[in-house]
Structures are given as C-alpha cells and as structure tokens.
Design a binder for these strands. Structure first.
Length: 111
RNA sequence: GAAAGUAGGACAGGCAAUCGCCCUGAUGUUUCAUCGGGGAGGAAAGUCCGGGCUCCACAGGGCAGGAUGCUGGGUAACACCCAGUGAGGGUGACCUCAAGGAAAGUGCCACAGAAAAGAAAACGCCCCUGACGUUAGUUAGGAGCAAAGCUGAAACGGUGAGGUAAAAGCUUCACCAGCUUCGGGGUGAUCCGAAGGCUUGGCAAACCCCAUCUGGAGCAAGAUCUAAUAGGAGAGAAGUCCUUAGGGACAAUAGUGACCCGCUAUUCUCUCGGGUAGAUCGCAUGAGCGGUAAGGUAACUUAUCGCCUAGAUAGAUGAUUGUCACCCCGAAGUCCUUCGGGGCACAGAACUCGGCUUACGGACUACUUUCGUUU
RNA sequence: GCCCCCAUCGUCUAGAGGCCUAGGACACGGCCCUUUCAAGGCCGCGACGGGGAUUCGAAUUCCCCUGGGGGCA
C-alpha cells in the first residue's frame, strides 16, 4: 500500500472523525467521507486498550492485507478509518476478514 | 543411569513459491517504474538506577532535601560487576543477605508479667521470732535472696560443678559468648593468640548521627529554514515652513462632539521580535563489535589487526501454501524406522549506551555435586 | 516516546506500627413500628489489588509486579 493511499496527518483523521459517517459493529467502527481526489485513502486506529504493542501491530497488518484484497469492491474517492474497539485474541485472519466484509456491505460506496 | 547446581552464547527455527511493507544505490525519467543492497530483541518491555547529549540556572562555599551504606578493586558512572570477610540455608556442588553507628541524644516496646531499661520485688523462695492449732498448716513482724517458678517475641551473660538456710561471677572452677587492652598475619573488612575486669536487651526499611555522592529538566530536549493569518516594537518616508542638528510650528482625512479647541487613530517601505502547521537537522562511528597478544585470581585494562551492522514518524519484517528440522502424544513393527495428530514461547527498535527487574516453549555446550547399579 | 499520581466493603471515605477480629455514611437483606409505603429504631451481609522483605507484630515502612487516572508538541 503506497503512502498516497493512506491517511497520515492528524488533520485528516480529525476531519474524517468529525465530518464523516459511521458504520458500527461490536468489533470495529468504520468512519468514511468523500474526499477531493479520485483515490481512496485509509487509516487504521488501534488504542492501547486493545493490547500490547506487537498485538496492535499485528491487527493493523491484517487489516491492511484484507483491505488490499477487497479494495476493488469499493468505489473511488473516499477516506476511510478503521477504529478497533474490541477484538478476540483467538480470532485469526479469516475471522477478521468475515467481519470486515460484513461492514463493507453496509457502506454506501460499496459496489 | 537418575536427580540437581553453576557458567556460556552472533541459539530463539531453516528453505521455496505467491501477494505486500520501510530505508538506500544505480538507471530511466520524474515522484513513479526496473534492477541491486540492507531491514528487531535477549529481554527491543517495566522506566527502577547510572552516564553521554541538549536547553535552562549558576562567583565560590554551605544548609535543607534526596541517594548509597562490611572491605578492597573495576568502571565514564552506578543502587551494577569482580575478589574477599562475616551471618544464614542446603547431605553436597552451591545459593541468599539495605551487613555502618543503639556506652551522641530523643522516642517506641501493645497484651501478659514483680519488672520492658539505670533497678526494682506488690507473684514468690528460704530462715528466725510471736500468736492460733494435737499435727499438717495459717497469720503478723524481722532478716536474707533474685537461683527456680510464672509472663512474654524479648528478662541486666549462658551451661555444668562447687558452695549455701535459700542464694548469688561468689576478686570459686571448667567450657562457651561478648567487651577492653596487648602481640602477630592481612592494604582492609577481619582472623589467630594472650591477659584483664566480670557483662553492656531489641528496634535506626523510628527520628537521628557518621562517611561518601548529589543543580533542574528532558530528543515531544534543542537547532535551522520559511508560506499564510492576526497582531507587537523601532526607524524612515508620506505635505509645507523654520532650524547646523536635535526639534518645533502649521496643515490633511476619520472618530469623539451640535461646532471649535483638545484627545485618539490613519497610508507605504524597511528592520527586529514572536511563533503554530510543515520541512530539514539532532539521527546512528559508538565508553561500538569480533580476533590475537600482554598484564591481572577476576571484573577489567592496554596494544594491534579486521568490520560497519535497522532508522520509521498514524510509525516499516506480515499473510497463505508446501517442505525439512526439533519436541510431545497415539498406533504398528524389523528396536530405530514408518504412519497419523498436535505443538514451536515471551514479545516489536523510536536519541543513545552500561546495568537492574519482570515475562518466556524449548534446544545445545562445558564444568561440578549427590544417590543408585555394574566392573 | 517521555514524565507524574492513585489503589481500603457494591459506592464515597476514616486510618500515620499493637486499642483493627479495620470504623462511619449511603446502598442491600431481615425484624420492629405503621392499615400500607416512606421516615425512624435494632440486627446482619460486606473490603485493605498481588507477591516478597524489615519487625515479636504491617492496611500503615521498604522492594518488585498488576490495574486505573492525568500531563507534555
């Protein structure tokens, strides 16, 4: 995932949190908003409550991987933020993938 | 063979395929491609100590506060490490210890107990005398004692013998502990020996005393660059006249006001300062790592040769599959092979080093101890 | 990443080495009172975050973990 496809600045995050729409799920929150470009940008947010440093990193890697796998199913021109609320430590890659797909279906830009 | 102990380390899975990440070199060319190189740990963790580095403060010194606390050494420094001393634990290899001072002073020691620290006998023991009583004993007075008993976590040296009415370190004895002095070994903590007088409770992770060290904050420290917006300080020019200059006088516009005076403000340029967002530096050649030699019991030091080994900033190493290696369980047998299933930890660099502490599935190497068996 | 602070019944708290078998208020349960409810009275339930050290003795002193909360551009 190139840097141009990611949200990097704190300003961008605040903008999406304040202006964007929300899809709720016990495990995740997904914020999204239309941006000015023709590309999609994604950010991931995992709080310290979720786990230790290496566990948080692992969740972010898995989320990135799932996003890359399924990004063609979403229209261009949006900013997204995945916020992790609570996650089972036993959940593996395919469990998280299922949850993310469920969330994608609730999103407006879903094809 | 089993069970243990100690130390070590470039141990902490390897390889391949597919899809991907960060840094970097070259080429194309521009911010994307292609090819090449590099890319987490022993604890990267907790942030508990000690440094480097940066900024702030500071004449010098002291007090207060904080830290350390057997001795000697190592180190940039330490609360760390090494060697030793003493105490405690273990059959042993070995392990553990905040281990200075309680005759500098103050304070505390609940309950129980006669008594909890400069001294006492109200529980008691023993003897004498009187009274009562046949006796056992009871009671009053006097003298002696602190041994035994009782209490407690702890009782003013301990054990045994002599001694006595009962007793007592009682200038009586033996052994032991402690104190003081002397002699000897050791740099020293301390150890060994002799003599003396007979003896001094515990708590300093209670206040404290003594010795040594100690300014504060932290890389989100701090430095540099500059866009935009708002606003601050200074200088000059904006009109005219006077004056060497400093400056002064008179005007213009707007506000206040009914109007004038008065007061306040006004445009442009330059400089300085402030400083948020962003970028760059800080930022990886260092008390560095490895080999060899010398010194030292060792920690470590010195010399010399070789090597360069992550650098992100919403924060880089992952996912899937196959296979091999290792471990565990089950089954089969040709007794070390096959098949099936499962497992492979704790955990992710954020300025950087030295430690400590905590988490952790296991594998290996070396040395040592105890027990069992065989020869 | 760095720097601080806190932890006692379900909740808010008292406690400063022995009087702690940890006190109080609210809440909860039972009984009394009342025609009933509330208020009131009596009784009960219920806690020192975990481990180690010092001490004769620790909620209290010291060390190490664990879990919360806050600050720094």
């Amino acid at each position: 995932m190139k840097k141009s496809e990611r949200l990097l600045k704190n300003k961008d995050f605040i903008n999406v949190y304040k202006q964007g729409k929300i899809v709720r799920n016990p495990s995740f929150l997904l914020f999204y908003i239309k941006n000015e470009t023709t590309k999609n940008r994604v950010g991931f947010s995992v709080s310290k409550k979720t786990g230790k440093a290496h566990e948080r990193n692992k969740i972010k890697r898995i989320l990135k991987d799932i996003y890359i796998k399924h990004r063609n199913e979403i229209k261009d021109g949006y900013d997204f933020i995945f916020l992790v609320r609570k996650i089972n430590k036993e959940d593996n890659y395919s469990d998280i993938e299922k949850i993310i797909l469920e969330i994608f279906k609730k999103v407006n830009p879903y094809r």
